[in-house]
């Protein structure tokens, strides 16, 4: 598996990462090296081995349906939430107008 220069440019643009020609020159071969390296795993015969999602058997934990039970994941902290906003007005985030 390998990626073309166009594919890398497109993925970068989808991820909103600005990437000039010089960077693409180095990034494309680097990515392909990584892909080649990972591809070695394909040489291992793993037929009959169950796919594993975690090294330690573990199951997804669920939370109870309780509002603001844990301070770290509770609402009611608008100042914290807005603290890093480039613009905050009347309790809203302000962003450049996104409608034509």
């Amino acid at each position: 598996m390998s990626v073309t220069r166009e594919e890398v440019a497109k993925i970068a643009s989808l991820a909103r990462i600005k990437m000039g020609d010089a960077e693409l020159d180095t990034m494309v071969p680097e990515l392909n090296n990584i892909l080649d390296w990972v591809e070695q795993l394909g040489e291992v015969d793993c037929s009959g081995v169950e796919p594993m999602t975690a090294v330690i058997p573990n199951s997804l934990r669920l939370r109870d349906d309780v509002v603001d039970a844990i301070p770290e994941t509770a609402g009611g902290r608008r100042e914290d939430v807005l603290a890093n906003a480039p613009a905050a007005e009347h309790g809203f985030f302000g962003v450049p107008k996104v409608i034509e």
Binding site: R63, V67, A69, I70, T73, G76, G91, F92, F93
Partner: peptide
């Protein structure tokens, strides 16, 4: 539900903006 899908913030309708937002 009372709380959101992945956090403990309330789902109640009509609250003041950004008052029911957790760090998640």
């Amino acid at each position: 539900s009372n709380a959101k899908l992945f956090s403990g913030a309330s789902t109640a309708f009509g609250a003041e903006p950004n008052t029911q937002v957790s760090l998640v």
